[in-house]
Amino acid sequence: MMNKMLDFIPSLPVADWVETFMDLLTDNFASMFSFIQKWGKNSMESFTDLLLLIPPILFILIVAIIAFFATKKKFGLAVFTIVGLTFIYNQDLWKELMNTVTLVVFSSIIAIIIGIPIGILMSKSNVAENIIKPILDFMQTMPGFVYLIPAVAFFGIGVVPGVFASVIFALPPTVRFTNLGIRQVPKELVEAADSYGSTGWQKLYKLELPLAKSTIMAGINQTVLLSLSMVVIASMIGAPGLGRDVLSALQRAQVGNGFVAGISLVIFAIIIDRLTQSLNKKKY
């Protein structure tokens, strides 16, 4: 039989190898992981506390005003912000929302800080592009749940492994779009910059990054939304926030609660999506 023909290859213990590798990492870098865990947890908790210090009404107004000006003084998003956030407050999910904000803010910022330099490296070197591209494909196609396993192995449970898993999941768009944006800078402009004797850094700062900005911003927008989509999954390993309400509603089959928490997530997603998009405007 056809199936039998392949049996001469003994089953490879890939799972064991990965586990050995992970053990190696956790054993050797335990102190580093626990430092990150402690430091990360403290800074994120204080960030959430800081957000909670702001009276909700003030918070809602500030976001609405930002939305108003960011969308060229149109009322649509501002009104949506007021109604939406008031609804979340009304449903007594304010604290959960703030936890979610913290998680999204931290994982997005970390993903951007890591992603943009990798994207730049990729755009400058075809070798780097050929190596990094399949890794990004891997990161994006691997189900998000899988990242929870090493996250727990490294950091235990809580918000830090949640951010860790989110960063891995949300990183690829920023890297890809940064690479794309820089490679899309017209050749003649690159030649112009070179012909005047620009150094590589001057070319990057004065020409490539400004021109790639809108593409990079599109990538960042994707990264923010992807990290938000990890909120629910991260709640499975104890990350606080709206995701936890969705998860507990799921576990107890509470359709109503699940809907409320879910819709709150959607509201939040729409607001940050529109806000990050409106930051991406051309002035020339």
Partner: peptide, 30 residues
Amino acid sequence: RRDKMSMVFQNFGLFPHRTILQNTEYGLEI
């Protein structure tokens, strides 16, 4: 390249995100 020769391009090679003045001073700036 900075001191001896400058190039003019077919499609002008102007930087779209810089004003005319900022474009003109590019060579001196770098």
